[in-house]
């Protein structure tokens, strides 16, 4: 017997909140993207736990699609970061203030 499902869900919630905290408070674009990765990972953890609790494979299939979404998101995100670093010369979100409005 492993732990109750609530403990798995609690761990996933703490991980998700840590990721949200990271992507909200940090000012570096790469750290914001890392926060999004942590959040996706926490969602996958909750899905795997649910898949074991109800003895259904659907949860694990969803984690497979979360992996695909995370991989393409990080590819596009890093390309965007490199592109905007070329344009503005910085990866700090505070320096992206060229729009005067």
């Amino acid at each position: 017997m492993i732990v109750p499902y609530g403990n798995v869900l609690l761990l996933a919630i703490i991980l998700f909140l840590l990721g949200a905290l990271c992507s909200v408070t940090r000012r570096n674009l790469l750290m914001i993207l890392i926060g999004v990765e942590i959040m996706l990972n926490a969602a996958g953890l909750a899905f795997v736990g649910a898949s074991l609790k109800w003895q259904l494979l659907d949860g694990q299939a969803f984690v497979l699609f979360i992996f695909a979404a995370a991989a393409s998101e990080v590819a596009i995100g890093l390309a965007l970061i490199v592109y905007s670093q070329r344009r503005t010369g910085s990866v700090n979100a505070d320096h992206y203030n060229r729009m005067k409005g």
Binding site: I34, E37, G44, V48, S51, Q60, V63, A70
Partner: peptide, 22 residues
């Protein structure tokens, strides 16, 4: 938690590919 295939994928995709890209 009973997902050996996803464990391998986690190591390959997350720890291997995504973090190396970072």
């Amino acid at each position: 938690l009973g997902a050996p295939f996803l464990a391998v994928l986690e190591v390959i995709i997350y720890a291997g590919a995504i973090m190396v890209l970072f």
